[in-house]
Structures are given as structure tokens and as C-alpha cells.
Design a protein around this nucleic acid. Structure first.
Lengths: 105, 105
DNA sequence: CCATTCTATAGCACCCAGTGCCATAATTCA
DNA sequence: TGAATTATGGCACTGGGTGCTATAGAATGG
């Protein structure tokens, strides 16, 4: 079995796993570990990578910021390396990188 | 025309709009305003609402935190009202509320 | 039955991400 | 040329988020 799943396929598999769990076929711990295991990996993004993502989506810093619910000022700082996106911000950026801006609309 | 769009329908419409723009049928400014207009609105989430979202998804604080790329400690604080989720965090929580955990996997 | 693990709450110190505002310059469009 | 958008930059501030540790209760397992 491959290690990569498209998000819709992952969702389907998850539902199957949940059904198995409800039926008592697998225990909670296995279920929990399954959940944690099949998330898209998060890696730190370099300033240029962030800018590349935004330009691929053809939007200005301002529009990009609106999508992520942050300030345009912050987007500029991400792209220049003045600030580094953290936890939730990094997760959002990763989502956009993988699935496009529409995925967070 | 209704005001609500499912995210896939939104994406399709956006592509159409982009194509119209490329063809010169609409100008950049209209395109920009369209982009900003059709985002899912972000409203502040109350502690109980955050807990309700997590429990609807049937996951522990720890697993929930992993999905959002934050610490379990922070999820606990959100749910007890000790900290209020902001910009990117609030956006992520709103996404989960609307589209489920699978949408941010 | 007890032992163990997972769960959630809690407190505390720390710090940097993110905000807000404003000024500047380059670019685009009428 | 003038108006509007875009991006960079600085600077002060604050609270969101981390990291660690401890506790108690619930669920699991031998």
C-alpha cells in the first residue's frame, strides 16, 4: 500500500476505519494512531517558497492575506523572511501549497 | 442566485471567472473584488463552540491539535476561554467547522 | 482487582508571531 | 498626468502560542 493519499480518498478510508471501530473490529488506540499517521506532513516554508505559492495562485499580498485571515503586512514579512509562519499559519500555507487557494476559501 | 456555494462549486466558478479575465472579458479590479467577496466569512468562535466542533469530529484534544499543527495545551486553552484563536488559527477552525477535519488533513 | 495508559485541566515563565499604523516608491490603469 | 494598487519598510506593542510539569479522572488491559 502506498504512503500517499489524495484527501478525498483519505476521507473515504477514514470513514471505513471509523465504521470498523464502531463495529468493534479495531480499538480506540489503533484508531487514534491511524488518525495521527495520515496527516499531510508539515515542513517549514522558506520566504521564497511562500512568495512562489502566492504567485502561483495569481493573487496580491492583500488578497492572499484575506484568504488566510491575516494582515497584508504579515504576508510581506513572511515573504521577506522577517517573520516565520508558525503552527496554524504554517498549516494553512501548507494546505494552499498542496490543494490551492480554493481549498481554504 | 443563492449566496452560498459549496467549496467545489466555488472553485469551478472561480476558474470560469479567471478564464473570462484571461480572455479580456473582465478587468483585474473586478476579478480582485470577486476574489475577496466569495470567501467564507470568519466569525469569532466561543470556547464552547470550539469544543463542540472537536467533539463532533470525535477526536481528542491531542489529535485535534495535531491536525491544526498546534499544541494540545493550546487547544485546551481555546476550549476554556483562556486564549482566543486569532487570524490563521481562527481561519483553520472555521474551515473545520464548515468542511470537517478531512478538509484540513 | 490493580496497574497502566490516555485524557483533560491547570499554572507559569517566556518570547516571538502578528497587529496597527504610517511612510515611501514602483507599478498599473484611466 | 493623475489616481489607485502594490509592495517594502520601520517601529512600538500585546497577547497568542510554546514548553514544561503536575494533577485527577476515565478508559484500557493483564
Amino acid at each position: 500500500m502506498s504512503k500517499k493519499y489524495r484527501s478525498d480518498a483519505m476521507a473515504a478510508i477514514h470513514e471505513t476505519m471509523a465504521a470498523l471501530h464502531d463495529a468493534g473490529a479495531i480499538d480506540k488506540q489503533t484508531m487514534r494512531r491511524f488518525d495521527e499517521a495520515c496527516l499531510t506532513p508539515i515542513r517549514p516554508l522558506k520566504p521564497k517558497e511562500i512568495k512562489a505559492i502566492r504567485e502561483r495562485e495569481q493573487v496580491s499580498q492583500s488578497v492572499f492575506a484575506t484568504y488566510l485571515n491575516v494582515t497584508p503586512s504579515l504576508v510581506s514579512k513572511w515573504e521577506r523572511g522577517e517573520k516565520k509562519p508558525s503552527g496554524a499559519s504554517l498549516k494553512l500555507l501548507s494546505l494552499v501549497e498542496k490543494n490551492g487557494l480554493a481549498a481554504v476559501a
